[in-house]
Design a binder for these strands. Structure first.
Length: 751
DNA sequence: GCAACTTCAGCTCG
DNA sequence: CCGAGCTGAAGTTG
């Protein structure tokens, strides 16, 4: 892949560059073809818009006038770089003109000029409320209609559990038996020994073997914890989507916490398996009432996953390893074992351009250990695929791709329903006979992988993105360009504002106490009891080695300037700035919004809420008019329960309930000065949350407000957070707006 | 490249 | 016939 080297560097890739990011030109060069607007000469820019191709980018983008208008320099380092959009001075109007090769409607293209046509667009930015159905996401119902005549009744070869899709063990005995299984002495009903028992959270791995009598005892607290949380876990609505999301969120929380512990103890790094085993043992799963053909409730086309175990716990694809999931289903009077879901691992070179066709290789035949390769056999999964060809049942397809954000990782994308149209045998390069199945995507389904492919193409070559109004709203101030696009109407720009990357404080920074730093050499290590930064965070580093936030908490303390550790310390995450390809886009009915070209993992840092710090007194006067005011109001349950995991393994919950939630005094206005965060809309079913972070100044009342991903977010999905509930703001008169998010638990209004 | 690990199907046994 | 319990097969992940 021709991925630019600047693409979401992982910690391993972090260059040994200690320049403070926010005050200098982009640390990572922008992709070729994008003018970074720094002092160096820029390559010719070719953009393609629906209106046709034009050179030189956006109007006078490349010329010296533009450059001087967007003059850079370190002189404004105090507040980071500030670049004014659509300067209000008439003189600069020309320089601010963009997005149009002609001059005839230059006025309309004038960026954010308050007098230009753009001003009609009053409903912009974060005053608006995002839909619960993100742009790249559709309800499963759509694809359900495309199923065709599948009237088979799945025979459950599965033990049927409670009809409740997510069911915690309501039978305490089960867990007891599960533990009792270690001795096999109880004589009572014994749950099949999960290999969870081999995961001892403290001892690491049992060195051998599959012999269950040698297995170690899982943490005893496990049982109690799962019972305690029964009520907090089940989403009140019973909505399948909510349940799936709750299960995935729990899995992730558990996984992150286990990884954190593993990293501290340098033990096994298979936190995914541990989390999965706990979920299985506690019956914390979705859609576990039996396998099924076709749509899985609560799983939507385009959903992304990072571990096979995730597919498992939501009932999308049961086998933890195998690529073919199958079941016995009824066809008329006959039973047949047919394939129901496949995971195309992406190891084969399919015709990648046609996302509606998939040639899938049968399973087996690979040499493992000492065995030799052999021809594939028509049995199990392969046989089921063959039966599916004749039975013509739909098959769910999950496609695996290399994770662009992680060198070694993989992303799985649910791509909806396919049907097998053809099968044949083929001799592979290795000389073995292998089965091939040609699947065609059922028509009428929303795009899944197609969107992924498209946005990946944009990342590699941004000039392929159409409808671009501006190639970088940040004018080079962010690590990566922020595109401004409009696919829906003629609006040319949001209302005027000035792009800054650091919060503007009302009082001089020198009056604030610097945060005390640690003395760790090189990097802070997890498990180092002497690291005062870890201590400040409660004994653990708040981020995993890949930079994901482990837990939401009242405050996260990163290492800062006064620490002795290096730039590469894993406890420096948010201060390094944006690592995601964002675009500000025009939504259908909620003004402008924010979304990403990259897939985003739950726990990833997105961006900071940047604006002017507003004094309390001043705020009361202004808050009515300021739609860009950020306040730490109590968010909804989804956000508050992001940390569900720790309780499951008997640790103290770090959750905050609405009753105990206390807002911080900080108030930030991004009306005049701001960054991408000001475009994030509200949703009662958000995919982003805010988290207070400190790394430079010691001030619990005025920390940085950082945004993190609440769940995995597919590319091109609108990013939204919960603006907070009404009535929690004690100062001033709260304004309630009608909420349009449309989520099943929409509160109907927001601040 | 290797070691370590999972879930479930499919079987046997009582 | 049913459920418990065992084994083998599948590939993922670090």
């Amino acid at each position: 892949m021709n991925r630019p080297s600047n693409f979401m560097p992982t910690p391993d890739q972090d260059v040994l560059d200690v320049k403070p990011l926010r005050t200098l030109a982009p640390m990572f060069p922008a992709p070729l073809g994008v003018n970074t607007f720094n002092q160096s000469t820029s390559p010719p820019l070719i953009f393609v818009t629906p209106a046709g191709q034009f050179q030189g980018g956006f109007g006078d983008w490349n010329n010296s006038v533009a450059k001087s208008f967007f003059a850079f320099g370190s002189k404004d380092a105090g507040v980071g770089k500030a670049h004014t959009f659509g300067d209000q001075n008439a003189d600069d109007g020309k320089a601010a003109t963009f997005g149009d090769q002609n001059t005839d409607d230059g006025k309309a293209a004038t960026f954010g000029d308050k007098d230009a046509s753009g001003s009609q667009n009053t409903a912009i930015g974060d005053q608006d409320c995002a839909g619960g159905q993100p742009a790249a996401h559709w309800s499963s119902d759509v694809s359900a209609n495309a199923n065709g005549p599948i009237d088979t009744t799945p025979i459950t070869v599965y033990r049927a559990t409670q009809p409740n899709v997510i069911s915690l063990d309501d039978d305490d005995d089960d867990d007891e038996n599960y533990v009792a299984n270690q001795t096999s002495a109880s004589g009572r009903k014994i749950k099949r020994p999960s290999r969870l028992s081999r995961y001892n959270m403290n001892d690491g791995l049992g060195s051998d073997s599959s012999n269950s009598t040698k297995t170690k005892r899982p943490k005893a607290s496990h049982k109690k914890a799962s019972a305690d949380n029964e009520l907090t876990m089940v989403p009140p609505s019973g909505d399948p989507r909510e349940i799936v999301e709750a299960v995935l969120m729990t899995f992730e929380a558990l996984r992150r916490r286990h990884l954190q512990m593993d990293e501290a103890q340098e033990t096994s790094k298979r936190a995914d398996l541990k989390a999965g085993a706990i979920m299985m043992a506690s019956n914390l799963r979705a859609n576990n009432t039996g396998k099924r053909i076709g749509v899985v409730p609560g799983v939507e086309i385009g959903d992304i996953f990072y571990f096979r175990m995730e597919l498992c716990v939501i009932g999308l694809h049961a086998p933890s390893m195998a690529g073919i999931d199958y079941m016995v289903a009824k066809f008329g009077d006959e039973d047949d074992s047919v394939a129901i879901c496949i995971v195309a691992a992406g190891g084969y070179d399919n015709n990648d351009d046609d996302t509606d066709v998939l040639v899938y290789s049968g399973s087996g035949g690979n040499s493992k250990n000492n065995e030799e390769r052999h021809d594939q056999k028509l049995e199990r999964g392969n046989l089921a695929l063959e039966r599916s060809l004749s039975r013509k049942n739909v098959i769910r397809v999950v496609r695996g791709y290399k994770d662009p954000g992680c060198l070694t990782g993989k992303v799985y994308i649910y791509d909806g329903l396919y049907r097998i149209h053809e099968s044949w045998k083929e001799k592979t390069k290795n000389g073995i006979i292998c089965f091939k199945y040609k699947l065609l995507r059922e028509p009428g389904q929303p795009d899944g992988v197609a969107i992924w492919k498209m946005s990946q193409k944009w990342v590699e070559n941004p000039t392929t993105r159409g409808n671009v109004l501006h190639p970088d709203l940040s004018f080079g101030a962010e690590n990566l360009p922020v595109f401004l696009v409009n696919d829906v109407d003629n609006d040319k720009a949001p209302q005027h504002f000035t792009y800054i990357t650091q919060v503007k404080h009302s009082k001089p920074l020198s009056s604030m106490n610097p945060l005390k730093g640690c003395r760790c050499l090189s990097v802070c290590l997890p498990g180092d009891a002497n690291c005062c930064c870890a201590q400040r965070n409660g004994g653990n580093l708040p981020y995993s080695s890949s930079g994901l936030l482990v837990c939401r908490k009242p405050m996260v303390y990163e290492c800062g300037e006064s620490c002795q550790c290096s730039f590469n310390c894993r406890n420096k995450v948010t201060q390094k700035g944006v690592r995601i390809h964002f675009e500000v886009f025009k939504t259908g009915n909620r003004g402008w919004g924010l979304r990403s070209w990259d897939p985003i993992r739950a726990g990833s840092f997105l961006c900071e809420y940047v604006g002017e710090v507003i004094d309390d007194a001043k705020c009361d006067l202004n808050s009515h008019e300021d739609d860009y005011m950020f306040q730490t109001l109590c968010p909804g349950e989804k956000t508050l329960k992001w940390n569900y995991g720790p309780e499951l393994i008997g640790e103290q919950s770090t959750n905050i309930s609405p009753d105990t939630f206390e807002p911080l005094p900080i108030k930030l206005s991004a009306k005049k000065l701001g960054n991408i965060s000001r475009f994030m809309n509200h949703s009662c079913a958000p995919n982003v949350f805010w988290q207070p972070v400190q790394f430079d100044y010691e001030d619990d009342r005025h920390p940085h407000i950082m945004f993190f991903a609440l769940k995995h977010i597919p590319p091109m999905t609108e990013l939204t957070y919960d603006y907070g509930d009404i009535g929690t703001d004690s100062s001033g008169v709260p304004r309630a707006k009608n909420c349009l998010c449309g989520s099943s638990n929409c509160r109907g209004f927001f601040i």
